[in-house]
């Protein structure tokens, strides 16, 4: 099966835009699996933030999928197009990565 991922790309202060990827998947696989597949097979410059892969323990992979805020590691890939965007209420760093660290844990 193929999922079509429409992924927002761009760094802070730049004009960004959507990039389109076709990602093969088996039922059960997740959006994070799809993003990792893109990095290995298509474009390693795609920035995503995650730590625990898919245990949903680190809570770092929160993004917007089709307008809803979700964890990329527990959202399943589906046939057809899915739109992936960074969190709208956080400062953008790059691509799907936003500043989510507590303010007193950032480099001053």
């Amino acid at each position: 099966m193929q999922a079509k991922l429409k992924v927002w790309r761009g760094a802070a202060g730049e004009t960004g835009g959507f990039a389109h990827y076709e990602v093969p998947f088996e039922p059960g696989q997740t959006v994070l699996d799809g993003l990792r597949w893109i990095r290995v097979h298509r474009d390693p410059s795609l920035a995503i933030r995650f730590s625990c892969i898919n245990a949903n323990a680190c809570k770092e992979c929160m993004i917007r999928v089709d307008g809803k805020t979700v964890y990329a590691c527990t959202t399943r890939l589906a046939q057809g197009e899915m739109t992936l965007e960074p969190l709208p209420n956080k400062t953008l760093i790059k691509d799907l990565v936003t500043e989510i660290a507590p303010p007193d844990e950032r480099l001053k």
Partner: peptide
């Protein structure tokens, strides 16, 4: 290198 107290093995 990640967020404080969230990555690594402990949380897993």
């Amino acid at each position: 290198r990640s967020l404080i107290g969230r990555g690594g093995a402990t949380v897993m």
